[in-house]
């Protein structure tokens, strides 16, 4: 057998649209959890957004949180259970808009949690409205003429912002549109968990993901848009790594 789906992932179909980046993100997180052998120690927080049903897809303990409050819920879980590995999985509306206060303060406290932040530049679940991460000129159902900076502000660069906080030990932005980028993303997810296991501080991985239905394009066109439109605005890379050096899987 050359490839077997991770045990941490339930063997079920998801509700995600064809070509949606969430499926890849779920699988990578679960592969890393299997490889680190931590499935029985993981406690996860699912967001409000497209990934609200993540607890039906993951084979470990998961709670929901109110919209945007996942980092606060995770704080309560981790502070009471320092032996567990706690992560949140949040979209851009959840994390960057309604939950901006929670993510900034959890990061600033250096909470020993791992945050996986799916940036697909719009609100997918509610039908494609503008998010803080929506690109300039991008048409959404609430920016029908395209986002204009003077009116709706600029695309929010969450990882760059959080990198400034002393509580943050690992901050990276990756993308999920090509095999190479997916391998890089998996390494970053691995490092985010290892950062927590080393108690080095708060870890966040932003994942640029395609949302073909929200963007009104085909899945193939959507991954081209990630490359051509998103990456120039949201540069990829490791922005901060304060944890002690770790060996990454090749």
């Amino acid at each position: 057998m050359k490839y077997q789906p991770p045990h941490a992932l339930q063997p079920v179909s998801t509700h995600y649209c064809a070509g949606c980046g969430h499926g890849v993100a779920h699988r990578l997180i679960c592969e890393v959890i299997d490889e680190l052998g931590i499935r029985e120690r993981v406690l996860a927080v699912a967001p409000v957004g497209c990934a609200v049903l993540a607890y039906d897809y993951w084979n470990f303990d998961v709670t929901e949180a109110a919209h945007g409050r996942a980092p606060a819920v995770a704080t309560g879980m981790k502070r009471c259970n320092p032996d567990k590995l706690v992560f949140t999985y949040q979209g851009d509306g959840d994390l960057a808009a309604i939950g901006a206060g929670e993510i900034v303060n959890a990061a600033n406290r250096g909470e020993l949690i791992s945050v996986f932040f799916i940036n697909n530049a719009n609100y997918g679940m509610t039908g494609g409205q503008m998010a803080p991460t929506t690109l300039l000129g991008q048409k959404t159902t609430t920016s029908p003429a395209g986002r204009v900076a003077r009116r709706e502000g600029w695309p929010m660069k969450v990882v760059e912002m959080l990198t400034q906080l002393d509580g943050v030990a690992f901050a990276a932005r990756c993308a999920l549109h090509t095999p190479k980028h997916i391998r890089d993303a998996k390494r970053a997810i691995h490092t985010a968990f290892v950062t927590q296991m080393q108690e080095a501080g708060f870890a966040i991985v932003e994942l640029l993901a395609a949302c073909p239905v929200g963007w009104g394009v085909t899945p193939i066109q959507a991954i081209e848009l990630v490359e051509q439109q998103m990456i120039p605005v949201y540069p990829l890379g490791v922005f901060k790594q304060a944890s002690s050096p770790v060996s990454l899987p090749s």
Binding site: L43, V45, T63, A65, A66, R69, A72, V73, A74, T75, G76, M77, K78, R79, C80, N81, K84, G101, E102, N105
Partner: peptide, 12 residues
């Protein structure tokens, strides 16, 4: 955040 932290502790 306080009440959500309570929820995080309560679920465990």
């Amino acid at each position: 955040a306080a009440i959500s932290m309570v929820m995080g502790a309560a679920v465990t």
